[in-house]
Design a binder for these strands. Structure first.
Lengths: 195, 195
DNA sequence: CCTCGGGGTTAGCGGTCGTTAAGGGGGTCG
DNA sequence: CGACCCCCTTAACGACCGCTAACCCCGAGG
């Protein structure tokens, strides 16, 4: 069963993704779920609270999924599984990904702190996995690499076109290649060693 | 010499990047350059026109730089040069990159058409270079790969920390690795062939 | 010296937005 | 049958925002 709250959050996510938080009015969100305007205040304390709950739940989902997969995978498979997880999430929830990337700055201060903390912990899961795969990599580089990998994988809302499976495969290959390229310090490498 | 217009655009870009187009008021932009509020209308027709000119000039800069480098490089070096160009631009203009990624949807319809057209041509430069490097790659895949590479490289505003040169090197390695990983179809590869 | 135009000021208008107020309709349970 | 509660409605308020109006300062050119 899908509660009214979830229905509203899904509609709001799509609108926020397309027009930005301040570019969407309460009335438009209401209209998107078939009610109009102030009815939303029966379900949320404020518009800020909608964004807060949206971003918090995304961050919790990512952190939880990341930890779960890390714990379930063989040590050599952790990074592979994290990549697969992030790719699947991004492809299945493009508007959530977009909102999380663009609208962190529109959160209330306490909400932003909460979300930031969750994000940091999720990034830490990645950093650990990266450094386990390449032990002589320093931590700041690993963190920057994790952010770059997110940028790659989360670029998916700006593409479409390719079809979910081909896209997933391609993103996994590119993320894998990106991390390998960084870790092995591609001299300036094989852009012409074609197949 | 830096004109008033450019000064205003730079300040506006930083504010738009941080708070989103609708999250920034005319008065704040004015305050950021030391004048207050409606003074900006001596230099721009409207707030929309600021964003329009900002995004148009970014797109023109990228397209022009991309074409220039393509024409100047040896065929086998084109992709390498494009990567280097995009990395440098992203690292040197983080707020412009952020605005271009987040605020395309806030443009006027004619402005958006203009910007979209320029962006499409820039992407085409990349697509051509990618397919020259791996001739048996189909065009949609190459285009999706280009977008993913942009996502990777443009993630730089969300990182910082690492220092411009290390960051540039790392992003080039990752972008190179990502494209190579896609083109050669990494089976599910060497995440453990450490250095 | 006077003019004049570029670039600035403050005041205010019209519209929009988030939010609250006030009220109503329809299931469910005692 | 009646009380209640959940969910919705429309009306309205206060704040804010983009933009215009009206006015001013000042440096350069005849």
């Amino acid at each position: 069963m899908v509660t009214r709250r979830e229905q509203i959050l899904a509609a709001a996510a799509e609108l926020f993704a397309r027009h930005g938080f301040h570019g969407v009015g309460i009335d438009e969100i209401g209209a998107a779920v078939g009610v109009s305007g102030p009815a939303l205040y029966r379900h949320f304390r404020s518009k800020d609270a909608m964004l807060g709950e949206m971003l918090t739940s995304i961050s919790e989902t990512l952190l939880d999924g990341g930890q779960r997969r890390r714990d379930a995978a063989a040590p050599t498979d952790v990074l592979r599984e994290l990549i697969r997880f992030q790719v699947d999430f991004a492809l299945d929830n493009p508007s959530l990904i977009t909102v999380q990337e663009r609208n962190l700055g529109n959160l209330t201060d306490p909400d932003r702190r909460r979300v930031r903390a969750l994000q940091r912990r999720y990034v830490e899961v990645w950093v650990r996995a990266i450094r386990d795969a390449w032990p002589d990599l320093d931590e700041p580089t690993a963190r920057a690499a994790a952010h770059a990998a997110f940028g790659l994988i989360n670029s998916t809302p700006h593409s479409r076109h390719l079809g979910r499976d081909r896209m997933a495969t391609m993103l996994r290959e590119m993320a894998t290649g990106a991390l390998a390229g960084m870790a092995t310090g591609l001299p300036d490498s094989d852009l012409s060693t074609a197949s």
